[in-house]
């Protein structure tokens, strides 16, 4: 018995064709869809009805933790753990804590950005079915791909293939899972 299909993949030569195709795929009712391109295409965001990235809210809390944690750490060091009289300055000489507080805010926000990006993209992911299509190698250089996954309720091997063929792709291929 053949392995179940991951989906059907259509290949396009230009970003414009891909954008048009994603619009038609969406209006046809397909929802388990993804597009692959060698460069970011802002228009896909709208044509595929993708939600805005939730990444900034994680980064905000990362930065907040860095800022509050950093400032708290410095206060705790200066007032509790190791109080030092430096030229008669108050123990809470908070102005001189600002540079380190700022640096720790940026540090934590930056590391959160990276960690969240990796997590939201589900990386690292060494194996993915789309790599089974030999021509998918070109997705990182010059070609544009659209995949309708077989899990989509409207997916039907014959009818979906016919539909994809109406979008004038360079080629439609089956993606083995």
């Amino acid at each position: 018995m053949r392995k179940p299909l991951y989906g059907l993949m259509a290949e396009f030569a230009t970003p414009e064709q891909l954008i048009e195709a994603t619009e038609k795929v969406h209006s046809e009712g397909y929802r388990k869809v993804d597009a692959y391109s060698p460069l970011p295409i802002e228009e896909l965001h709208h044509s595929m009805h993708l939600p805005d990235s939730k990444l900034p809210r994680f980064v905000f809390f990362g930065g907040l933790a860095g800022g509050l944690g950093g400032f708290g750490l410095l206060q705790w060091i200066s007032q509790v753990a190791y109080p030092l009289n430096i030229g008669g300055r108050p123990l809470n000489s908070w102005v001189s804590f600002i540079p380190i507080t700022f640096e720790l805010t940026v540090l934590l926000a930056g590391l959160t950005t990276f960690a969240t990006l990796i997590a939201m993209c589900g990386l690292p992911l060494p194996y993915h079915p789309v790599f089974n299509v030999p021509r998918f190698k070109l997705a990182s250089s010059e070609r544009f791909f659209l995949v309708i996954e077989s899990e989509d309720p409207r997916f039907d091997l014959v009818r979906t293939r016919e539909f994809l063929n109406t979008l004038h792709p360079h080629e439609v291929s089956e993606v083995e899972s």
Partner: peptide, 11 residues
């Protein structure tokens, strides 16, 4: 394992 997915490009 980057594959240029449109969903990933948004993030």
């Amino acid at each position: 394992g980057w594959r240029g997915s449109a969903k990933h490009w948004v993030h």
